[in-house]
Design a protein around this nucleic acid. Structure first.
Length: 267
DNA sequence: CATCAACAGAAGCTCGGGTT
DNA sequence: AACCCGAGCTTCTGTTGATG
């Protein structure tokens, strides 16, 4: 999708990525973003559904600013101190008129001139008053994406399709995984060796723990089963040890980020 | 000119698999 | 069992072009 052209409604704020989908929506200078990987949610469909759910939550909980609020905000190039009011200067440098101008819509732009010749010093005050009247006619919220309003005003319906919970990184099975279970692989040190199944789990800052189950001792099926069970125990120990008090500053920031994201989702 | 959607990619974490 | 490297995945920030 070329830049500047809005996505179709279903994909509002959502960009497809090689690994899944990314949601990115900006409200009043704050960017709300979250990524939904295929691997984390089980399938492309689940990743998209959950991306849409999260986006809808953001759109509902953070509405655009009022059009009037936006119109009243002073731009850096404003020279009069009142938004929508400016003076028209003649080529001689003399102020010709004070003007009140308000953009109501594409086919309705309000504009009233107050010539200084006819009205004298009152022209400026009259223009400011006129601008206030013009703003009275400006209603509603800022228009953003064509789909924004429909999403915001639609009731948050119960999803027809069930949502699968997000998996932790440790639970994600890479496309290169050969065993079918993340963190469990078959090892064969050399040609003559019958090999063994290895359960291995990495923990940031602590390195990895691993345990091997020899084919010679347990047989291929039992060794694999034991490795899978060991991997589950390793994950359990890892999750139990991941207490907030033990997190590194960076991890803590991430944890807080995730929490605020979820809180937003609950709004 | 500010704000937004859409896009792009760097950086860091984690895992798989080979090797010792 | 441990180490190492390359690659997958996530997080986060920067850029571009449209719009009002």
């Amino acid at each position: 999708m070329p830049r500047g052209i809005p996505n179709p409604a279903a994909m509002y704020g959502i960009s497809p990525r090689a690994w899944g989908f990314e949601v990115s929506i900006v409200r009043n200078g704050t960017r709300y973003y979250k990524q939904f990987g295929r691997a984390s949610y089980g399938s492309e469909e689940q990743a998209l559904l959950q991306a849409q759910d999260w986006r809808d939550g953001v759109v509902r909980s953070v509405p655009p600013v009022l059009r009037r609020t936006r119109a009243e905000k002073l731009r850096v190039n404003n020279t009069t101190g009142v938004s929508g009011v400016f003076c028209q200067v003649a080529s001689s440098g003399k102020i010709r008129a004070w003007v009140a101008k308000t953009y109501i819509g594409q086919d309705e732009i309000l504009r009233t001139d107050f010539p200084v010749d006819a009205m004298g010093h009152a022209a400026q005050a009259l223009a400011i008053e006129e601008r206030a009247r013009q703003l009275e006619r400006m209603a509603g919220l800022s228009r953003l994406h064509p789909a924004e309003e429909a999403i915001r005003t639609a009731p948050a319906a119960c999803p027809a399709e069930p949502r699968s919970p997000k998996r932790s990184k440790s639970e994600i099975r890479r496309c290169t995984n050969s065993s079918g279970v993340s963190g469990v692989h078959f090892k064969s040190p050399n040609v003559g060796h019958p090999g063994y199944w290895l359960a291995i789990t990495y923990t940031a800052g602590k390195g990895s723990v691993s345990k091997a189950f020899s084919i010679k001792e347990h047989g291929p099926d039992t060794a694999k089963r034991l490795a899978i069970a060991e991997r589950e125990r390793q994950l359990e120990r890892k999750l139990n040890a991941t207490d907030v008090s033990t997190l590194s500053p960076r991890q803590e920031v991430r944890q807080q980020h995730a929490t605020t994201s979820e809180a937003r989702q609950d709004l």
